[in-house]
Design a protein around this nucleic acid. Sequence first.
DNA 1: CGGAGCGTTGATAGAAGTCAATTGACGTGG
DNA 2: CCACGTCAATTGACTTCTATCAACGCTCCG
Lengths: 239, 239
Amino acid sequence: MRDILVRALERRDRLSQEELDVIAALPHRIDILPPDTDIVLEGDNPTESCLVLSGFTHRYHIVENGRRQISAVHVPGDFVDLHGFLLDHMDHSVGTLTAAKVAFIPHSALRAVTETQPHLTRLLWLLTLVDAATHRQWLVAAGRLPALAQIAHFICEMHARLAIVGLTEGDSFLLPISQATLSDAMGLSPVHINRTLQDLRRTGLISWHGDMVTILDRHKLEKLGQFDAAYLSLVPRPR
Amino acid sequence: MRDILVRALERRDRLSQEELDVIAALPHRIDILPPDTDIVLEGDNPTESCLVLSGFTHRYHIVENGRRQISAVHVPGDFVDLHGFLLDHMDHSVGTLTAAKVAFIPHSALRAVTETQPHLTRLLWLLTLVDAATHRQWLVAAGRLPALAQIAHFICEMHARLAIVGLTEGDSFLLPISQATLSDAMGLSPVHINRTLQDLRRTGLISWHGDMVTILDRHKLEKLGQFDAAYLSLVPRPR
DNA sequence: CGGAGCGTTGATAGAAGTCAATTGACGTGG
DNA sequence: CCACGTCAATTGACTTCTATCAACGCTCCG
């Protein structure tokens, strides 16, 4: 657990030895969960927050007619449920997409960190700010980009975020997400996702076979999706 | 400045006398800005964060073809640019919608707060988490609700947030936002906004004359927009 | 062998966008 | 006081994007 969290934090700022020790000493339990398993449900008031060690997870919301909107897809290294630390009453559910290894850290331990480690606290805070920035990017894509560009943006984002934790091989990465899931993330219909993905493949921007995605023309894909990784705050600097 | 920030924070948790003193002592400068004025531009790396004392402001993003997406509308009492405190490189711009009185607080002062006031820090952090939760609600509305419901949700949200700072009169409030602006917030065209608003009025859910909005049938409007104020975390509790 | 899940396809419907013009409210200057 | 300009709201006609419905094929696996 220590390593993957340190890795995420060190992409944003240097950590002191004391901070490394504090992180290493964080109490936690590790759980291995099957695919499509709920971790936290909307309305819950959890007492621990989860961090993804491996596998893909997501935040989602169910609306009245049973439709679903995914508001975030999380990859290994993401402190998925850090929001639940201060929010009472979860406004959304969190669940696995694939089988996942997840670490649960008691809120009491996080609170202790905030009491004694101001700099580390700011970095944890920053992680949630990056989540918020990502939400904004999705909003822009959903509101003002056509489906083709919206999906292009998503693929660029996934590549950038998986690269942080070494889960890319050049321009390729595993993205174990069905078209139905993608449609819930993009707010589109599965049929339209299918046709739009075909477009992206036909025009030679990506290939996607099984779970293996390859960005064939990064420049064009980023331009199409108007992707700029700056919102991920991946430049280490004093915070 | 002190009062309006204290008011926002005390809706989330009790403040100690020391914390009240710290807030009162926060250095800041106050500025009065005309409508449609930019406060922070995308790409900036600001050294102070702004808090809205009066007037309406927004976060927005410009996409390639010149279209605009508003990712948040902020009302008096909102610590609009608290995100900029830890994010280097703003991922979006912030500007006024109406004339606005804004307080700028140096990041150095905020940093000092985080060094010595863990509880107050958690509350400031919470404010940004509520922003993130609001982004998620907008995502759900944009992705999975038809325009009618999306706008209904927005109106409910504005009412709830204005009520926090006493800017509602029963079910009425001033919302000095043009249909064009609303279209940029909802990710819809101005024409469609116009027709959808007519729908909301014709069916007796709201009235909207000039800047004055009145919710005529709150129950139906909230049901239509699937609005539940829980995501605003308005229940004071230890954090 | 036979579901079950996923990706794919065709046909059709519906929601929202675009374009272009009109109306009404205000404010300014002659 | 009226002509004029501006801005926001409104309307109509038409187009485009995306959703829906209903199949069908493929692969994996019990």
